[in-house]
Computed example of a mutant assay.
Amino acid sequence: METVRAYSRGEYQRSGRELRFAEFFMVDRLIRNMAKTIQAQVADLAVTNSELNTAYLEKEKANLQLVNFNDELERKVAEKTLALSNSLFREEHRRSMLQSLLSFSHDLQTGDIIETVMTQVVALYPTAGWAMKTYADNKNQWACENIDKSRLEENEIRPEEHYSDYYCLPDGDEYLHCFKVKNSQNEIVGIIVMQYAKLKRDDFEVISLFIRQLSAELEGRLLNSELARIAITDSLTGIANRKAFDHDLEEHIQLFNRYPKRHFGLFMLDVNGLKRANDNYGHHMGDALLIKTSQLLVETCRITDKVYRLGGDEFAIILEAGDRDSCSILWHRLEKVREKINYACLPNGEHVEVHFAVGYSSTDQNPADQVCLVADKAMYKDKRRFYEKTGLER
Rank of each mutant, 00 (worst) to 15 (best):
G265A: 15
R158Y: 00
Q195Y: 13
I192Y: 09
L199P: 00
A277F: 03
E187P: 00
A228N: 07
M268F: 06
R258Q: 10
G220C: 05
E251D: 07
N272K: 03
F264E: 08
V271W: 04
R258H: 12
H247Q: 08
N257V: 13
S164A: 09
N257H: 10
S235A: 13
R201G: 00
Y167C: 03
H247N: 12
L176R: 01
E154T: 07
L199Y: 00
I157H: 06
N224E: 08
E251K: 14
V189W: 07
S235T: 06
L222F: 07
L266V: 10
R276P: 06
E251F: 11
D248S: 13
D165L: 14
Q185R: 14
Y163M: 10
R258V: 01
M285A: 15
G273W: 06
F256V: 14
G172M: 01
D202W: 15
D173T: 04
D173E: 07
S208T: 01
K275V: 04
E160P: 05
G273V: 04
F245Q: 05
K182D: 02
I157F: 08
Y167L: 05
G172Q: 01
R158W: 03
V189D: 06
E226F: 05
H247R: 10
L266N: 15
R221Y: 02
M268P: 13
D234T: 02
G282Y: 14
L218C: 10
R262W: 04
H283Q: 09
P260M: 00
V189H: 01
F179H: 09
P159D: 03
I192V: 14
V206A: 15
E160C: 12
L227N: 08
I211R: 01
H252D: 07
L266Y: 14
F204T: 07
L214C: 07
A231I: 13
K261H: 08
E154I: 12
R221K: 03
S164M: 12
A240S: 15
C178K: 02
E160V: 04
D165Q: 14
L199I: 01
L236R: 03
G190K: 06
A277D: 02
E156L: 15
E160W: 10
N155G: 00
F210L: 13
Y281R: 08
P159C: 12
N183T: 01
I192L: 15
N257W: 13
Q185N: 13
